[in-house]
Design a binder for these strands. Structure first.
Lengths: 344, 344
DNA sequence: CTGAAAGCGCTAACAG
DNA sequence: CTGTTAGCGCTTTCAG
């Protein structure tokens, strides 16, 4: 037969549907004996509530929506980054009976606001998880906030941590990477900057400068090349950096994809790693351990961050406590085999 | 004010809600002039239908659920594979006003049946996309079919293509890869097999054997090592293969993750690619072009396959035409830089 | 502590 | 070609 409904359960337990609804939603004000009776009726019938009905009546779906930037749906620039956030979000969703909707979109697209309003309106998610770099774009944050849907931002790259934000300490750990390189004896440390719209990654350039200063090294604009977070941009930037007269002995890229691009370029030019050139990245995506030699980088606990954020969303909506303190999840240096002393 | 509802649109357009519903659902039997009037009312009001209400009334959600095996939510073995399927599915979902729910699960877990029944009952997806290796497991397919939810299987690795299946020609293109290697002059071509439960990947071993036979090369069990589709298993298998007395001159791995593991092992042992050893993979994940040298592999159009499958699901449910022919999407050889003539 | 009634916003028959 | 009338299965008032 069809799935049992709340009415069946009520009849079976000899109570009203409202009482069943109460035990379903863990509201208090139900006598223990009644609750037990209802629970066993639920078990007897193998009943499970119908989400659509629930969502319609309660005016929001039991859905968390993960929104991220996906410029080219087919090239998948940072699959590892997204997948790890997904995993984390999924884990918490499961625990709380929510489902995860994924919604990639392109910030360069004019329709993005209508698009976001569309999902919100149609799917009515209980909350939105906004990944960087979308999380640092005023307009997008504004559109979501205007809809009234609870929002938590991931790595928005703000100076100070705000509420409803899960942040990283990009600036600090980037300085740390420079310290590591300087300690190995490097003086000419180059940097490949990331996507210009991505503020958290932008903090890494500042951290690089902090690090140089702290180590008593001069900052030289010629040692900074622009990338856009992609493998290709890292390779291009490295080619340029390695072919200039006074070549750097180390290249620190603002993310792992670009760092792997650097390695690729070095191999092409016959530059040995780490003998002739040290390479460092950021993020510790899966790829970092699969290239040869394994890449020195900074581990970002993306999954844990997404877990935190999802929890904020779910608990915030459950407890009618929409404001929650921001947290910063620190990255940690992963020294592997692409960094070593400079040549000579 | 609150979001406009179908009633508001109907009033604004001077028609009944049923007519609005008709244009929303692209049913025919609406005069063009009426349709236009309704459409402009929708635009004027910025109306978008409420999915929960729609889903409740129509008894299924406008949701496609992608179910895949995710043994360790945190290690993300084949992120590229999953991401590409996701992209493809997403693309079609968007076009048709559906959302994509992702549901990783672990087939080793005893609760997987209850788990699947759970999502199906709660989310009521319009259809399920089942990725390999789940797609070749009888029990899982049975559980989903028992629920009555439309299902399309991706790469189930069947001998013959069945309905509601999007398959690959693994056996054929694997033989093709052996031809490529043999044509370069290789005689000792080793193979690293994939996950034993993954039948489509299992077909690749058969294809390898076909290829050998077609090229007049003898099959030797010593040239076959067992892997499990992971990077690490590929590395381990290669280490073993490369340290045996009569070393192979080429290693063909049943997927790219393992092939990259082979490259890693070769680098560690100081074996040069492709000078001393040719390496080939399967799938053409993003990684394949990021390692150095770029990996020779077989491109699997995962995104396109998922698009196909999603379309089958959406159109099947729309047209009450649950049965659809299976299709096979062929893989294509991508000759890159890891394969070359054998040494001497 | 429990129940009755009134929708949530839409789709599904069935009439016109 | 278009409208009317019932629900879908739940949560929310508001009364007991």
């Amino acid at each position: 037969m069809a799935q049992p409904t709340i009415t069946d359960v009520a009849r079976h337990a000899g109570v009203s549907i409202k009482t069943v609804s109460r035990v379903l939603n863990r509201e208090d004000g139900v006598r223990d004996s009644t609750r037990l009776r209802v629970e066993s009726a639920i078990a007897d019938l193998g009943y499970a509530p119908n989400q659509s009905a629930r969502d319609l009546a309660s005016r929001h779906a039991h859905l968390i929506c993960l929104v991220y930037d996906d410029p080219s749906a087919y090239e998948l620039p940072s699959a590892g980054y997204i997948m790890r956030m997904q995993s984390g979000a999924l884990r918490v969703c499961r625990q709380h009976g929510y489902e995860l909707l994924i919604h990639p979109c392109n910030y360069r697209n004019k329709d993005i606001h209508a698009d976001l309003e569309g999902v919100i309106r149609r799917a009515r998610p209980a909350g939105i998880l906004l990944a960087a770099p979308l999380s640092n774009m005023r307009g997008i944050v504004g559109t979501i906030n205007a809809s009234g849907t609870p929002l938590v931002r991931l790595s928005p790259g703000l100076k100070r941590v705000q509420d409803r934000v899960v942040a990283t300490n990009d600036r600090e750990f980037s300085a740390g990477m420079v310290h590591h390189l300087a300690a190995l004896g490097h003086h000419r440390i180059a940097f490949i900057s990331g996507h210009p719209k991505h503020k958290a990654v932008g903090q890494r350039l500042l951290g690089y400068q902090d690090g140089l200063e702290q180590c008593g090294l001069a900052f030289s604009p010629q040692l900074v090349a622009a990338g856009d977070n992609s493998f290709c941009s890292g390779r291009t930037a490295a080619l340029q950096l390695l072919q200039q007269p006074c070549r750097p002995t180390a290249i620190f890229a603002a993310n792992d994809d670009m760092a792997v691009g650097v390695m690729h370029a070095a191999h092409q030019l016959g530059v040995r790693i780490p003998g002739d050139l040290s390479v460092a990245g950021c993020d510790d995506i899966t790829l970092a351990q699969q290239v040869f030699p394994p890449l020195t980088t900074t581990r970002q606990p993306f999954a844990a961050m997404a877990e935190q954020a999802t929890l904020m969303l779910i608990q915030g909506s459950a407890k009618d406590r929409p404001d929650q303190d921001g947290v910063v999840v620190p990255g940690s240096l992963q020294i592997r085999a692409t960094t070593g002393p400079p040549p000579e």
